[in-house]
Nucleic acid binder design. Structure first.
Lengths: 191, 191
DNA sequence: GTATCATATGTCAGGATTGACATAAAGGAT
DNA sequence: ATCCTTTATGTCAATCCTGACATATGATAC
């Protein structure tokens, strides 16, 4: 079973979805840290059905084309549960911007500053978006977030990761831009 | 030109290296955020030489097999410089542990706690290792780090990213483990 | 009427990456 | 003598993933 397979099962464990629905959720991010195109999703659904992890039923619609709605099986749910706590095999982190930083000493000062300022902005914007979601979740899901065995807690947990990830990334970009610009890093709090 | 190609050029811009040397440096990490196996490096070197980005000369050794030492060309260096400040096409972040967190509500409490504690430890250890390197760099390279157009600054910059990345990741894992364990997150400073 | 858009499902060629397989030279250990 | 390790260079099959191609329905816009 591939990681993508588990990503799909993770979504189907919460609600029944069509391939198109899955695509919508995975185009952005599943819990913000996995993504896939529909060209990968449809074949994977077929494999999952082959393996008995999901089943589908055709739903006829009046105002749209028919769709196949997928449902997770008992077997699929068992496999998903087992996978969740299995230690992931560490995979190398690949980050092109950080790789660029390794050769930044060769670059034009101004262009390099612009690059890291732009990236800082990108991550600040993503962070602001996530913070909005967080406020909404903390208001709407106050009760659900007290128990860690609710899907709401799990969604909130991945969002927390998104927030700390974007904050960290934006902070490093700011430090880079400040350093290259020559102003010396701006201190915001300690470190 | 592939990103791997630029990773190799980034190393060759600092010193001439053989395929084997490159493998050693990329097995760990190039500046900690790119990696490759030798099965990818050797063909890529051939492509780079084909494109005129590098040249090689055979160096005979007495106590070891002969080796091909690669050198970056003027063309290669120009291309590398241009690439450094070109905005990277945003690629989706894929993180299996965070994906697991999205389905953690299905998991056994104890097993999930153990998982995130283990991962916390892994990242703490990596962080400690990086902090050691940082102390060494700040002592050894005090002067070089004042100018951002030195390779030492670039190495230091990627290390900074490694440090903040690991600290962020470890912190999130701790929050996860604490939350699932039921002790409620341990506050360390604010946030 | 026709063009475009959102819904809906698929295939396929090609590139990136991994893990296994393969060879060879020299040193050190048993 | 034989085995193991390090250095050194390569190939190849399989997998993951992207981007392009392909088709169909019904709604809305012009």
């Amino acid at each position: 079973m591939t990681t993508l397979g588990y990503a799909i099962l993770g979504l189907l464990s919460r609600e029944d979805l069509s391939g198109y629905d899955l695509k919508q959720r995975m185009a952005g991010r599943v819990g913000y840290f996995w993504s896939a195109r529909h060209s990968q999703i449809y074949p994977e659904l077929a494999r999952l059905e082959d393996g008995g992890y999901v089943t589908h039923s055709v739903v006829e619609q009046r105002e749209r084309p028919d769709k196949k709605v997928y449902e997770i099986t008992a077997r699929g749910l068992d496999d998903l549960k087992e996978w969740v706590t299995r230690p992931p095999v560490p995979r190398p982190t690949r980050d092109e911007l950080t790789l660029k930083a390794y050769s930044v000493w060769l670059a034009d000062r101004e262009e390099a500053t612009r690059l890291f300022r732009e990236e800082e902005l990108r991550h600040e914007e993503q962070l602001a978006h996530y913070e909005g979601l967080r406020t909404w979740m903390e208001g709407e899901w106050r009760e659900d977030l007290t128990s860690t065995n609710s899907p709401e807690f799990a969604s909130y947990a991945t969002l927390r990761r998104g927030i700390s990830y974007e904050r960290e990334y934006a902070g490093w970009c700011r430090w880079m831009a400040d350093s290259i610009e020559g102003r010396g890093p701006t201190r915001v709090g300690k470190e």
